[in-house]
């Protein structure tokens, strides 16, 4: 053995790269992705009994120069709706709403999504960087505890 590192990921990227991870996480968790917020929110009004929970990805930054207008992605699964967007401070924010769901349930859904989003983002970024350094993938698997394990190798003179 040589070195073991434990790292806490920081999501700093342009919106398109984050959007790719959002789509991947949504797919993994069974959420439908809506191309525009207008499409998902059309005809939807804030009904009585609808709870809302917001979660910031503390270690995240959506690069400002990549920000276009109305950059948000809306995801739905049953009666739960997640809106992923850049907040005023430049952080990535997930807002969960849903009629008939308590705040704790919505918070859990938002947290589960942010974790999956982080996992997808790190996977995409790491694979891109490893390939740029000529690493070859020896093995790749998803373990029982839902971790993604990647084994790569390269030969050096």
């Amino acid at each position: 053995m040589s070195t073991v590192l434990i790292l806490a990921p920081v999501i700093v990227s342009s919106w398109p790269a984050i959007a790719v991870a959002v789509t991947g996480a949504a797919s993994a968790l069974g959420f439908a992705v809506h191309k525009t917020a207008q499409e998902a929110l059309a005809g939807v009004e804030q009904e009585q009994g609808t709870q809302t929970v917001e979660i910031d990805l503390a270690e995240s930054q959506v690069l400002a120069q990549s920000l276009a207008t109305n950059q948000q992605i809306v995801l739905t699964k049953g009666s739960i709706r997640l809106v992923v967007e850049r907040d005023a401070r430049g952080r990535c924010k997930v807002c969960a709403t849903g009629k008939g769901h308590g705040k704790a349930e919505l918070k859990q859904a938002a947290e589960e999504f942010t974790q999956k989003l982080t996992q997808c983002f790190v996977y995409n970024k790491v694979m891109k960087e490893l390939k740029s350094k000529s690493f070859q993938v020896v093995n790749e698997e998803v373990t029982q505890d839902e971790s993604i394990r990647i084994h790569v190798r390269r030969w050096v003179d």
Binding site: M1, S2, T3, V4, L5, I6, L7, A8, P9, Q115, K116, T118, Q119, V122, Y123, V126, L130, F135, V138, T143, D145, E146, S147, I148, R149, I150, H151, V152, R153, R154, W155, V156
Partner: peptide, 17 residues
């Protein structure tokens, strides 16, 4: 040179070089 990267469910990353 081998690198093993494990990305946990919560997003934490373990790297073994």
């Amino acid at each position: 040179h081998d690198v093993e990267i494990s990305i946990t469910k919560t997003g934490e990353v373990k790297v073994h070089i």
